[in-house]
């Protein structure tokens, strides 16, 4: 490969905010290696019993004790939103597992017994993805 000839004097960008990106110094422009660890075997979590696009809900409790009274310890989790420190404190709650709910009274609550949660929190799935199904059918 020939010797790289550098221009005389400082290199001035055409615009004040331009960033100089030197061409690769490597003798070739292709990757040295393209290893594939697990292609095709991604841990895609398939549809669970909750399925797609169903309203779901979970029971909220003021304490772990109350939650465990309805479910097992492993099924109860402390309210831990993204960005929080994760510790307990005022305003924190315990939740049982999500179960399918139709907001019309029909549910599939997996709890073995019901002491009466403080509240029920509703969640949903399937709020993204409908355009993709339409596009796939049309293409």
């Amino acid at each position: 490969m020939g010797e790289l000839k550098k221009p005389d004097g400082p290199r001035m960008p055409r615009r004040p905010d331009a960033q100089f990106r030197p061409l690769r110094d490597q003798p070739q422009k292709k990757s040295n290696a393209v290893p594939l660890l697990m292609l095709g075997g991604a841990a895609l979590v398939g549809l669970t019993a909750l399925g797609r696009g169903h309203d779901v809900q979970r029971n909220r409790y003021g304490s772990l004790e109350e939650c465990v009274h309805d479910y097992s310890t492993g099924q109860c989790e402390l309210d831990n939103p993204v960005g929080s420190s994760g510790g307990g404190g005022v305003g924190m709650h315990y939740y049982g597992p999500w179960y399918r709910g139709d907001r019309g009274g029909g549910t599939s609550d997996p709890g073995p017994g019901r002491s009466g949660p403080h509240a029920v929190e509703f969640g949903t799935r399937g709020g993204f993805g409908s355009s993709g199904r339409v596009f796939a059918r049309a293409s």
Partner: peptide
């Protein structure tokens, strides 16, 4: 963690996984 777009959920405060 991989999931289908339709499996993304909303908890009332956060987007959630399966």
């Amino acid at each position: 963690t991989a999931l289908d777009v339709e499996q993304v959920g909303w908890s009332g405060r956060d987007f959630i996984d399966m």
